[in-house]
Amino acid sequence: MSASLEGPTVPWTAVGHTSTKASVYGVHGAEGKTYWKAFATRRQLRSQSEAVEWASLPANGVSGEHRHTRTEEIYLILSGSGELLLNGGPRQVRAGSLALTSVGNIHGLRNTGDGHLDWWVIETLAPATSSVLSGSPAPEGADMTQAVVHDLFEEKRVDTKGVFSGPLKQVEVIDIAAGGERAVGRPGAELAVYVHAGEGVVEAPGLTETVTLVKDTCLLIEAGSQSTFRATGVPLRLLVVTLAVEDEGGEK
């Protein structure tokens, strides 16, 4: 990062990198160690979201099976290979595998490769959970019970409609050629952006501050703002998740 990014005019929040991470033991009841990084929690997020995180399993490591009772969650495999345990059934996963797990489903993950298995985790509140927290009546029939796995690197864009009912609306891949640029931003949604490969910078209109981007950098773009991502030297691959933000009238 080339400058301090404090202040209300800066459209990027929760900039972080996986070089600083924690070691966690016994994740969801499994034995062994997992590496973990929280890029943002509910305090930094305007959408009805719980957390934006990264996790890594060493060879033979396991993240234990557990049921989601109040949140919708994605697992996006960043590197390595493994076995996703989804409602008791094993699914082989690799870089680009995107699992959408809605309320009521059980998932876990096992590293079956020789190296680390890394994945991006974003957890959002289901409408019924948001209602409980706000004290408003819970919506009827809003929560789904589906769980599906996509190949994001093949499909390039995945819409969560019909699986998720909360703020997480879309997951996409943005590839920028070396020397190229791309404007990124959404009205009514904050964006979680993960640098999967390459290097570059991100800048915004009217600001002299920039963020230097390298592999495994994650940042949030505030709702309604525009940022320009530039690839410097080598192509830049971004993974982008759209998190809808409620307006003052409660609409998304």
Results as ranks from 00 to 15, higher is better:
His66Arg: 01
Ser23Cys: 11
Thr160Gly: 07
Asp151Glu: 01
Ala197Trp: 10
Ala147Val: 02
Arg157Cys: 10
Thr160Met: 11
Leu86Glu: 01
Val163Glu: 04
Arg230Trp: 00
Glu251Cys: 13
Ala14Asp: 05
Ser130Thr: 09
Val103Gln: 05
Ile122Gly: 05
Ser136Leu: 15
Asp159Pro: 06
Ser47Trp: 02
Gly89Tyr: 14
Lys37Leu: 09
Arg110Glu: 14
Gly26Leu: 08
Val193Pro: 00
Val148Thr: 05
Ala147Gln: 05
Ala51Gly: 04
Lys33Met: 12
Val148Gln: 06
Ala38Gln: 12
Asn87Ala: 02
Leu86Cys: 02
Gln226Trp: 10
Ser63Trp: 12
Leu98Pro: 02
Ala178Cys: 06
Ala99Ser: 04
Gly104Asn: 00
Ile106Ser: 07
Val163Arg: 03
Pro8Arg: 15
Trp36Cys: 13
Lys33Ala: 12
Ser165Ile: 01
Leu152Cys: 01
Ser4Met: 11
Asp159Gly: 05
Leu45Arg: 05
Gly61Thr: 00
Gly26Pro: 01
Ala183Phe: 09
Ala40Lys: 06
Gly80Ser: 08
Thr217Trp: 04
Ser63Ala: 12
Gly115Met: 03
Val148Asn: 00
Val184Met: 06
Ser225Phe: 10
Gly115Thr: 00
Gln226Phe: 05
Glu140Arg: 13
Ser130Leu: 03
Arg46His: 10
Gln92Glu: 10
Lys215Arg: 12
Asp159Lys: 09
Ala22Thr: 15
Ser49Arg: 06
Ser130Ile: 02
Gly180Tyr: 09
His68Ala: 07
Glu140Ala: 11
Ser102Asn: 06
Ser134Met: 15
Ser102Val: 03
Ala95Pro: 01
